[in-house]
């Protein structure tokens, strides 16, 4: 028999995608058409037996664990849409540092390709790596340790004449160790030590004026430089400059290069990753 409804409409009907009027039309047709009625019955049985019982494949356990870690390390935020001034800035800052740090842990790409070698950035990166190694080995003691990020901020406020925002990332995988006033390429900076998954990470807070002297473009936001087995990420937020130093996972670079050897500037660590 010639049907007034199409097969496509039957499926839309079964999918619950028809309007009330359309649904009534299809149902009226089903009462008078054994063929379509049979199609609906078997299709329903097929769905009940198979499709309705399909579930997405379970995520592999190791992926689940890494996701839980990532979620734990997200900066805490309240759902109120706007927070004034300092708190808001800290939130942004914390989110960004979390992004960069997590990027390191998780092998995630927060980086865009950075074009153009820039001597001053390489200098900054080298100096940051030096300082980072000294901090990690305890050769440069912290001025303030065993303190909360808030207490440390308070302490720096009276010591330096630029604003220091210390990300307060609460996670069992990330601990704030302390901070000190340090010198990077002849400039006073604040050096902050973190422990991330049993590895040391240093964050250098650079005054706006000095950061501007690096002559970096605004985009891409994060400049990534690999030096001597470390990854240095340089960026700016609300005027303040930052350089973050962390180990490249497993130090693959040191397998083929000595620690003293100056590595070529790589636009992105992809060459060392994949």
């Amino acid at each position: 028999m010639i049907c007034k409804v199409t097969r496509a409409e039957i499926f839309q009907y079964l999918d619950g995608e028809l309007s009330r009027g359309e649904r009534a039309q299809v149902e009226a047709h089903l009462r008078s058409c054994p063929d379509c009625s049979r199609l609906v019955t078997t299709e329903r049985a097929f769905r009940a037996t198979y499709l309705d019982r399909l579930r997405p494949d379970p995520v592999p356990e190791n992926v689940r664990e890494r996701v839980i870690r990532l979620l734990d390390a997200l900066p805490s935020r309240q759902s109120s849409p706007s927070r004034p001034g300092r708190l808001g800035r800290l939130g942004v800052m914390a989110a960004m540092v979390a992004l960069v740090i997590l990027g390191g842990i998780l092998g995630l790409s927060v980086r865009d390709v950075w074009k153009g070698p820039n001597a001053s950035v390489i200098q900054l990166a080298d100096a940051s790596v030096d300082q980072h190694q000294k901090l990690a080995r305890g050769l440069l003691p912290f001025d303030i340790a065993m303190a909360s990020p808030r207490q440390a901020e308070e302490w720096f406020r009276s010591k330096v004449d630029f604003k220091v925002s210390i990300p307060d990332l609460r996670s069992e995988h990330l601990a704030f160790l302390g901070g000190r006033i340090s010198h990077l390429t002849g400039v006073d900076v604040v050096a902050l030590g973190y422990r991330v998954n049993d590895k040391n990470v240093s964050l250098f807070v650079i005054p706006e004026e000095q950061y501007r002297r690096l002559g970096l473009s605004e985009t891409p936001k994060f400049k990534v430089v690999n030096r001597r087995g470390y990854e240095v990420v340089v960026w700016r937020s609300h005027g303040t400059g930052y350089a973050l130093v962390s180990e490249i996972g497993g130090q693959p670079c040191l397998v083929c290069h000595s620690p003293e050897e100056k590595l070529e500037l790589t636009p992105a660590p992809a060459a060392h990753r994949s």
Binding site: L71, D72, L74, R77, S79
Partner: peptide
């Protein structure tokens, strides 16, 4: 509710 907890 804390946004992060909800997101998690």
């Amino acid at each position: 509710m804390d946004l992060r907890a909800e997101f998690q």
